[in-house]
Design a protein around this nucleic acid. Structure first.
Lengths: 156, 156
DNA sequence: CAGAGGTAGTTGACACATCACCTAAAACGA
DNA sequence: TCGTTTTAGGTGATGTGTCAACTACCTCTG
């Protein structure tokens, strides 16, 4: 490692601001969803993906891909959600290794009940404070950084 | 809850991009720090704050305030870091309730060793891909959103 | 100086994430 | 067809984060 290029002032401010925003925003969104709907952001993400798909059913690996989660994370999370009746596992008849994750009616109700409050919170805490230009800037930043992250990931 | 205002296309793109960037970036930064230096981002944050302070020592509540963490989180984390010898607890002689968290030499070495690689990763994955304007935009966004978040928090 | 109330910190229970490893069922090639 | 490899998914251990409840100590007021 050659002499590191420390962050200059502007970089420092941007980075620390971003980190702090990110962590607080996450915490608040989680808290709102949890207290108002007894769901975590992760539960919500899983349910969203299942609700957007025919039969409300995806294989574990598809879910992992859609969510950009590791399969083990999906598996653990599905186990917990299954315990609460939000989803259930169904074995695949044609491939003995495979398992479907199916959203139950209870899961559907949960997300229907949670979605409006969640969107509202996302707006209140984030979207509605930003101008159209800022949204565009953010989208661009996310795009660039994600490209870099994906790139880096492949290289591994 | 009146009819929710769902996100329009641009908002959707910005929001989803941000969420995804945020989660992947976090994961990668954590992974790099972990594999190269056996530290988590949280460990790193604690050590940074301790290293910037006289005696490398802060009371738990000061640490909590500096990091914007709950005191319970600090307590748990300090326990884990203490187990690894990165910090130690010292009772306060003047206030029997209080405890100091002091960075050990081992902790100092750990952060000295970790910092260059971490900054480098932050640059590679994030900062260096962004223009000065983008950094300024990001700082502004973070500022606005944080103001809103703090505001919301007080209100509670 | 008693005791009411606040403050500093810890603890236990639980949810979450990651890692390394494991099992079983395909798929495939000699 | 047999044995190897790949693929789908699950498991256990460990570290992390949150909440609610708790202990011990300080402080302040009558």
């Amino acid at each position: 490692m050659t002499d590191p290029r420390w962050l200059d002032d502007a970089e420092q401010r941007a980075w620390r601001g971003y980190v702090r925003m990110q962590s607080k925003l996450n915490a608040q969104l989680n808290r709102q969803l949890q207290t108002d709907s007894q769901l975590s952001l992760s539960d919500f993400a899983v349910l969203v993906h299942l609700s957007e798909v025919p039969d409300r059913s995806l294989r574990v690996s598809q879910l992992a891909q859609a969510l950009h989660w590791e399969k083990s994370r999906v598996s653990h999370h599905v186990t917990r959600m299954e315990r609460r009746g939000l989803v259930k596992r169904v074995e695949c008849p044609t491939d003995g290794r495979s398992a479907f994750v199916v959203m139950t009616d209870c899961g559907q109700n949960a997300i229907d009940a949670a979605a409006p409050g969640h969107v509202d919170t996302v707006r209140r805490l984030f979207i509605d404070d930003l101008t159209a230009d800022q949204l565009k800037a953010l989208e661009a930043i996310a795009g660039q950084v994600l490209a870099r992250l994906d790139d880096e990931e492949c290289r591994t």
